[in-house]
């Protein structure tokens, strides 16, 4: 497509280390936005919340419901900050690319960070590694290794493939949804801007509809990512079979 990516090749002289500077920039922007919103939501705590504090309390209740659906709450209290961080981060990241996309010259600088497969796969690998870590920590190494042979030892390759499949689909689901949405947004913009006046008028309503739909999909994908994180962690740490 017409948008190039600003890639910094061979950073620090290491031959395989390339950074996509647009990703670095957008990840920093997303982190700053989430940080500012949550700090604003938590200052001057009042018993009757209003404004941003109300919104933060609603998100916390939502994540708490999400966690207690998959795991027993006493064991799972520690995962509330993880769930909150994941859902706010992914929601903000998904929404940033819907509002606007900015390219300077020929390179694309402002987009959703989650429209890059590297970022979503990194999140998925991080979450799956975390679930393995908690599995070993809560159940002990022997029981964790034995769980690969449940219910019958012949299931071992299936359990191993399940780990890889979970990681890949968790990452690629988020990437695919956001990337496809962004490509279509770009195509609609080029319909409106780079063809004649009929294209402009005809493309206005689909553009509005598609932006609305992308906001909805961004929310749903953040919810699904967080919910699946909790489900995978609960599979590793609960042992009532």
């Amino acid at each position: 497509m017409e948008h190039e990516a600003p890639i910094l090749e061979n950073a620090f002289g290491i031959p395989w280390l390339d950074f996509n500077l647009s990703n670095v920039f957008m990840v920093i922007v997303t982190t700053l936005i989430v940080l500012v919103l949550t700090i604003l939501g938590a200052r001057k705590l009042q018993m009757k919340p209003k404004g941003v504090q109300n919104f933060m309390e609603w998100i916390l209740e939502f994540v708490r419901g999400l966690i207690s659906d998959s795991m027993d709450w006493k064991m799972a209290k520690v995962f509330l900050p993880l769930g909150l961080a994941l859902i706010t981060y992914i929601l903000t990241a998904n929404l940033l690319g819907v509002i606007t996309m900015v390219s300077v010259g020929d390179t694309l600088w402002w987009k959703s960070p989650t429209s890059d497969p590297g970022i979503t796969l990194s999140l998925a690998v991080f979450v799956i590694l975390l679930s393995h870590y908690y599995g070993i920590k809560v159940k002990g190494t022997k029981k964790y290794l034995k769980s690969y042979f449940q219910p019958y030892p012949v299931f071992l390759p299936i359990n191993l493939i399940e780990e890889f499949a979970n990681t890949l689909t968790l990452g690629l689901r988020l990437f695919g949804n956001i990337y496809a949405g962004e490509v279509l947004l770009g195509l609609l913009v080029s319909l409106m801007m780079h063809t004649n006046a009929l294209g402009f008028v005809g493309g206005a309503i689909p553009m509005l509809a598609w932006q609305g739909f992308s906001i909805f999909i961004g929310g749903i994908q953040a919810y699904i990512f967080t919910m699946l994180t909790m489900v995978y962690i609960s599979h590793k740490i609960s042992s009532e079979h």
């Binding site: 690629l172 689901r173 990437f175 695919g176 990337y179 749903i220 699904i224 699946l228």
Partner: peptide, 23 residues
């Protein structure tokens, strides 16, 4: 909604493959 998100994962990956192929 959770079920729809899960079921649509592979078709969305197919969309990405088709876009990759076109461009």
């Amino acid at each position: 909604f959770l079920g729809i998100g899960l079921v649509e994962a592979l078709p969305i990956i197919a969309v990405v493959v088709a876009l990759l192929d076109m461009f």
